[in-house]
Design a protein around this nucleic acid. Sequence first.
DNA 1: TCAACATATGAATTGTTAATCATATATATT
DNA 2: AATATATATGATTAACAATTCATATGTTGA
Lengths: 101, 101
Amino acid sequence: MMKTPEKLFFTALGNDYRYRILTLLMKKPMSVNALAEKLGIEQSNLSHHLKCLLDCRFVEADVKGRTRIYRLSPATKELVGSTKKYINYYGGYLKKCGMLS
Amino acid sequence: MMKTPEKLFFTALGNDYRYRILTLLMKKPMSVNALAEKLGIEQSNLSHHLKCLLDCRFVEADVKGRTRIYRLSPATKELVGSTKKYINYYGGYLKKCGMLS
DNA sequence: TCAACATATGAATTGTTAATCATATATATT
DNA sequence: AATATATATGATTAACAATTCATATGTTGA
């Protein structure tokens, strides 16, 4: 069904866990375990989301012993900073939209 | 179930019709009919999307006789311009993400 | 005021995305 | 080599978002 880049982009960022992963990694790189604790999410679910973010190059990872440390890819830092501004601006209106709620 | 502003924001923009409406309105204001023609979409479906964009203040409208002319709200011009840049950058990677496709 | 046109709305259906569950892989430790 | 630990993967199920369909509203012109 060949989705558009626009659709893929907003769908990727439009999941709360994925977006929270990005904001957590803004602060510092983290292992899967550490992320799972912070998010209160099941390990396998988290792994699925991390794979998605990795495929999309929103994050990078390197192997450290048997753990994997995830970090934001450079371009993503700017992206997250920029979107935060808009979310703040539109936030109040968005919650009044019946179609989305 | 109280969704987050982040989720609402990306869901609002993550529908192809809604995003295309915004890019069409970047060029010039348009009536519902004109938009429906450009998009090849059913009128009632389009109206639902326009209501959403209106509720979220991505667009504004004014009544002109029995038609309604929609236009981008000022802040949205900047938003669309800014996101276009990121979509262009990540586009190539996004389509390789199995979870999204 | 009646017909037609332009747009909007609500409810039901269909389609898409995410979570779960079971299991696999890879590395380190004993 | 066997076990424990950390993470990944695939398939199924559950949750959510978008479309359709039927109908409503509001405005203009005959």
